[in-house]
Protein backbone atom coordinates (compact mmCIF):
# COMPACT_ATOMS: atom_id res chain seq x y z
CA UNK A 1 0.00 0.00 0.00
CA UNK A 2 1.37 3.42 -0.86
CA UNK A 3 1.88 6.26 1.59
CA UNK A 4 -1.01 8.24 0.06
CA UNK A 5 -3.43 5.37 0.56
CA UNK A 6 -2.33 4.91 4.16
CA UNK A 7 -2.72 8.63 4.75
CA UNK A 8 -6.25 8.54 3.30
CA UNK A 9 -7.26 5.68 5.55
CA UNK A 10 -5.94 7.59 8.56
CA UNK A 11 -7.68 10.81 7.49
CA UNK A 12 -10.98 9.01 6.98
CA UNK A 13 -10.76 7.41 10.40
CA UNK A 14 -9.37 10.23 12.51
CA UNK A 15 -10.07 13.44 10.58
CA UNK A 16 -8.57 16.42 12.38
CA UNK A 17 -6.22 14.34 14.48
CA UNK A 18 -4.07 13.78 11.39
CA UNK A 19 -2.04 16.92 10.72
CA UNK A 20 0.24 17.74 7.82
CA UNK A 21 2.94 15.42 6.58
CA UNK A 22 5.24 14.69 3.71
CA UNK A 23 4.30 11.79 1.48
CA UNK A 24 6.43 12.28 -1.62
CA UNK A 25 10.12 12.62 -2.42
CA UNK A 26 11.23 11.45 1.01
CA UNK A 27 12.74 8.10 1.87
CA UNK A 28 10.25 7.57 4.70
CA UNK A 29 6.84 9.23 4.13
CA UNK A 30 5.35 10.54 7.36
CA UNK A 31 2.38 12.37 8.83
CA UNK A 32 2.20 14.28 12.05
CA UNK A 33 -0.65 13.42 14.37
CA UNK A 34 -2.09 14.95 17.50
CA UNK A 35 -0.12 13.66 20.50
CA UNK A 36 -3.26 13.11 22.65
CA UNK A 37 -4.65 10.63 20.13
CA UNK A 38 -1.50 8.65 19.38
CA UNK A 39 -2.53 5.64 21.46
CA UNK A 40 -5.86 5.39 19.66
CA UNK A 41 -4.17 5.76 16.28
CA UNK A 42 -1.53 3.19 17.16
CA UNK A 43 -4.15 0.64 18.18
CA UNK A 44 -6.03 1.30 14.95
CA UNK A 45 -3.07 0.97 12.57
CA UNK A 46 -2.03 -2.22 14.28
CA UNK A 47 -5.39 -3.93 14.12
CA UNK A 48 -6.88 -2.59 10.87
CA UNK A 49 -7.07 -5.28 8.18
CA UNK A 50 -5.68 -3.03 5.44
CA UNK A 51 -2.75 -1.64 7.45
CA UNK A 52 -1.69 -4.28 10.01
CA UNK A 53 1.40 -2.47 11.27
CA UNK A 54 2.44 -5.29 13.55
CA UNK A 55 6.04 -4.17 13.96
CA UNK A 56 7.29 -0.98 15.59
CA UNK A 57 10.75 -0.75 14.02
CA UNK A 58 11.92 2.20 16.04
CA UNK A 59 10.65 4.80 18.45
CA UNK A 60 12.91 7.82 18.75
CA UNK A 61 12.89 11.07 20.65
CA UNK A 62 13.76 14.36 18.92
CA UNK A 63 14.48 17.84 20.24
CA UNK A 64 13.23 20.51 17.80
CA UNK A 65 14.31 23.38 20.12
CA UNK A 66 11.24 24.50 22.03
CA UNK A 67 9.38 21.36 21.05
CA UNK A 68 10.03 17.73 21.76
CA UNK A 69 8.95 15.02 19.39
CA UNK A 70 8.59 11.30 19.09
CA UNK A 71 8.88 9.44 15.80
CA UNK A 72 7.34 6.01 15.26
CA UNK A 73 8.71 3.92 12.39
CA UNK A 74 6.18 1.25 11.54
CA UNK A 75 6.34 -1.83 9.34
CA UNK A 76 3.82 -4.44 8.40
CA UNK A 77 5.11 -7.98 8.14
CA UNK A 78 1.85 -8.99 6.44
CA UNK A 79 1.60 -6.30 3.77
CA UNK A 80 5.29 -5.36 3.68
CA UNK A 81 4.70 -1.62 3.76
CA UNK A 82 6.23 1.08 5.89
CA UNK A 83 4.96 4.29 7.39
CA UNK A 84 6.09 6.92 9.87
CA UNK A 85 4.05 8.75 12.50
CA UNK A 86 5.32 11.83 14.28
CA UNK A 87 4.06 13.74 17.29
CA UNK A 88 5.26 17.00 18.78
CA UNK A 89 4.71 18.45 22.23
CA UNK A 90 5.96 21.62 23.94
CA UNK A 91 9.16 21.14 25.98
CA UNK A 92 7.48 22.45 29.13
CA UNK A 93 4.74 19.79 29.12
CA UNK A 94 6.21 16.77 27.33
CA UNK A 95 3.35 14.34 27.96
CA UNK A 96 2.66 11.69 25.33
CA UNK A 97 0.48 8.61 25.83
CA UNK A 98 2.52 5.42 25.93
CA UNK A 99 2.02 2.90 23.11
CA UNK A 100 3.51 0.11 25.19
CA UNK A 101 0.11 -1.59 25.34
CA UNK A 102 0.05 -1.79 21.52
CA UNK A 103 3.65 -2.78 20.75
CA UNK A 104 5.67 -4.36 23.57
CA UNK A 105 8.86 -3.10 21.90
CA UNK A 106 7.90 0.40 22.94
CA UNK A 107 8.57 -0.42 26.58
CA UNK A 108 12.36 0.00 26.50
CA UNK A 109 12.30 2.50 23.61
CA UNK A 110 10.09 4.81 25.62
CA UNK A 111 12.29 4.39 28.66
CA UNK A 112 15.24 5.42 26.51
CA UNK A 113 13.44 8.50 25.17
CA UNK A 114 12.46 9.36 28.73
CA UNK A 115 16.04 8.84 29.90
CA UNK A 116 17.67 11.06 27.28
CA UNK A 117 14.93 13.60 26.43
CA UNK A 118 12.71 13.63 29.50
CA UNK A 119 9.57 12.83 27.55
CA UNK A 120 6.87 11.68 29.94
CA UNK A 121 5.01 8.71 28.48
CA UNK A 122 1.74 8.62 30.37
CA UNK A 123 0.45 5.15 31.11
CA UNK A 124 3.86 3.49 30.80
CA UNK A 125 4.09 0.68 33.39
CA UNK A 126 7.71 1.22 34.39
CA UNK A 127 9.02 4.62 33.33
CA UNK A 128 12.51 4.96 34.79
CA UNK A 129 15.98 5.55 33.42
CA UNK A 130 17.39 2.70 31.33
CA UNK A 131 20.92 3.74 30.28
CA UNK A 132 22.08 6.45 32.65
CA UNK A 133 22.49 5.92 36.39
CA UNK A 134 19.31 6.40 38.38
CA UNK A 135 20.73 9.43 40.20
CA UNK A 136 21.62 11.27 36.98
CA UNK A 137 20.27 14.80 36.70
CA UNK A 138 18.95 16.28 33.47
CA UNK A 139 18.28 14.89 30.01
CA UNK A 140 21.54 14.80 28.00
CA UNK A 141 20.24 14.76 24.42
CA UNK A 142 18.25 17.97 24.82
CA UNK A 143 19.85 20.81 22.87
CA UNK A 144 20.14 23.03 25.93
CA UNK A 145 21.77 20.38 28.12
CA UNK A 146 24.77 21.52 30.11
CA UNK A 147 27.36 18.86 30.95
CA UNK A 148 27.72 18.75 34.73
CA UNK A 149 31.00 19.79 36.31
CA UNK A 150 31.04 16.84 38.71
CA UNK A 151 29.20 13.56 38.99
CA UNK A 152 29.48 11.74 42.35
CA UNK A 153 32.78 13.46 43.02
CA UNK A 154 34.26 12.60 39.60
CA UNK A 155 35.21 15.50 37.40
CA UNK A 156 33.37 15.26 34.08
CA UNK A 157 34.90 17.78 31.62
CA UNK A 158 38.25 16.97 30.04
Amino acid sequence: MTAQEINEILKAQFGDAVLEGKLENVPDPFVKVQPERILEIAAFVRSDERLQFDYLMCLSGVDYKGKLGVTYHLYSMVHRHKFVLKVEVPTETPNIPSVESVWKTADWHEREAFDLYGINFTGHPDLRRILLPYDWEGYPLRKDYQTPEYYNGMKVPY
Partner: peptide, 14 residues
Protein backbone atom coordinates in the same frame (compact mmCIF):
# COMPACT_ATOMS: atom_id res chain seq x y z
CA UNK B 1 36.94 13.73 25.31
CA UNK B 2 34.84 16.75 24.33
CA UNK B 3 31.20 15.76 23.97
CA UNK B 4 31.07 12.62 26.08
CA UNK B 5 28.91 13.82 28.94
CA UNK B 6 28.84 10.27 30.31
CA UNK B 7 32.51 9.31 29.88
CA UNK B 8 35.21 9.51 32.51
CA UNK B 9 38.15 11.33 30.90
CA UNK B 10 40.79 8.85 31.92
CA UNK B 11 40.54 5.94 34.32
CA UNK B 12 43.42 7.43 36.32
CA UNK B 13 40.87 9.79 37.83
CA UNK B 14 39.57 6.91 39.95
Amino acid sequence: WEHGYHVLKGVDRV
